[in-house]
Amino acid sequence: MKNPSGERITLHLDMDSFYSAVEVREQPELKGLPVVVGSDPKGGMGRGVVSTCSYEARELGIHSGMPISKAYRLCPDAVYLRVNLKLYKEVSESIMGTIRIFADRFQQVSVDEAYIDVGDSINDYHSAILLARKIKNEVFRLHGLTCSIGVAPNKVIAKIASDHNKPDGLTVVKPEDIQEFLSPMHISKIPGIGTKTQPLLHEMGIETIGQLASSDVQLLISRFGKSGVVMHQLANGIDMREVKEREEVKSVSTEDTFDEDISDPLQIDRYIHELTEKVHESITRKHFRFRTVTLKVRFEDFRTYTRAKTLHTATTDKETIRKTAMGLMEEFLGKGRFRLLGVGVSKLEKLDKGQTYLTDYLQQ
């Protein structure tokens, strides 16, 4: 979407070394060690591949997609862990819920990356940079993980930018800087130009994005068909794709991990109120009403519980979220100190813009 100034600004967020970073978060004793997530190396005889690895392991030459046997030969003393998809999916859902709050349009493209379109709420790159920093800070504060963000006029440049200064990077590419940014890069930096296409381009004397951008498009078409046109456009920083949800949004939620555990009912009420504000702002911007309210609590000893209540009718009422969440909270009051609280809504229904509901009016 274009903002009021006529410019289009897209953010791409990419979690840093996601699987291994989650493992290190769960096992702090692994911090600073080369951690490799993948299949069992079986003493160098394993036949699987590396799913991802920590930056300490990357410094030793290990990388995603490498045969696990080769990784073991490079560093037999690394910490080798099996893939725990259930854990990574749970962490991903929580992180994406945090990010989604900031977006007018949100497109998750994998377990660890997403595009963010803030539409009319962002007017310039200065504001976009401030938002990107806020998102990075929130992801780290709430989830203890770092991410890298690219800010650019479109999706392809934003994605390339997010990978430009990892880990914990923030790279901004304004429209006037596109060619200077892209031209020196190897063609492999363009998403979709993989190991099969690269040798063919090399045979044509094309190694950098700049060379691809200035190539004869008819020659590219003769070699690659319609893909030649797409490659040429991407190399020139042209990408007309919009940020859009790939599937229906099923829920909206947010949570907060406290610097110090809390038990005071007044504090709890204040945090529930703040979480409610964030959730309500998000569903209002996305034109949803809800039927179910969910509360998440985590005690100081990491015991975690969720409770939910489904209403008789769907509503957009903010006070209903807060009152329902506080009602669900009563079960846990006086039973310990809390390190995390979360509020969410689900069973969402899409509203037409401008549509009002008598049920909402009667509840106000």
Score class of each variant (00 low, 15 high):
2 K>M: 07
5 S>A: 14
8 R>D: 01
9 I>A: 08
11 L>K: 00
12 H>Q: 05
21 A>W: 09
26 E>L: 13
28 P>T: 07
29 E>R: 14
33 L>S: 11
35 V>H: 12
42 K>Y: 01
47 R>A: 08
47 R>I: 03
48 G>W: 10
49 V>C: 11
49 V>M: 13
59 E>I: 00
59 E>Q: 13
65 G>Q: 08
69 S>G: 15
69 S>Y: 05
77 D>F: 04
80 Y>I: 05
80 Y>R: 09
80 Y>E: 09
82 R>Q: 09
83 V>C: 10
88 Y>T: 04
99 I>D: 04
100 R>F: 08
104 D>C: 08
108 Q>T: 05
108 Q>H: 02
109 V>P: 00
111 V>F: 03
112 D>C: 09
116 I>M: 02
117 D>F: 09
125 Y>E: 01
127 S>V: 00
127 S>F: 01
135 I>S: 01
137 N>S: 14
141 R>D: 13
144 G>T: 01
144 G>M: 02
146 T>P: 08
147 C>K: 01
148 S>M: 08
149 I>P: 00
150 G>F: 01
158 A>T: 01
159 K>S: 05
178 I>C: 08
179 Q>C: 01
182 L>F: 02
185 M>W: 10
187 I>L: 04
192 G>M: 09
195 T>M: 04
196 K>Y: 05
196 K>E: 08
199 P>T: 06
202 H>K: 14
205 G>Y: 12
206 I>N: 05
218 Q>C: 05
218 Q>N: 14
222 S>P: 00
222 S>N: 15
223 R>N: 10
233 Q>I: 00
235 A>I: 02
235 A>T: 03
237 G>Q: 03
238 I>R: 12
242 E>I: 02
243 V>E: 07
244 K>D: 06
245 E>C: 03
248 E>D: 12
256 D>I: 06
256 D>C: 09
258 F>N: 05
263 S>Q: 08
266 L>E: 15
269 D>F: 06
274 E>K: 14
280 H>F: 12
288 F>P: 02
300 E>D: 14
302 F>H: 09
306 T>C: 04
307 R>L: 11
311 L>G: 03
313 T>R: 15
314 A>L: 02
329 M>E: 06
332 F>W: 10
344 G>D: 11
355 Q>D: 10
357 Y>M: 12
359 T>V: 13
361 Y>L: 12
362 L>C: 03
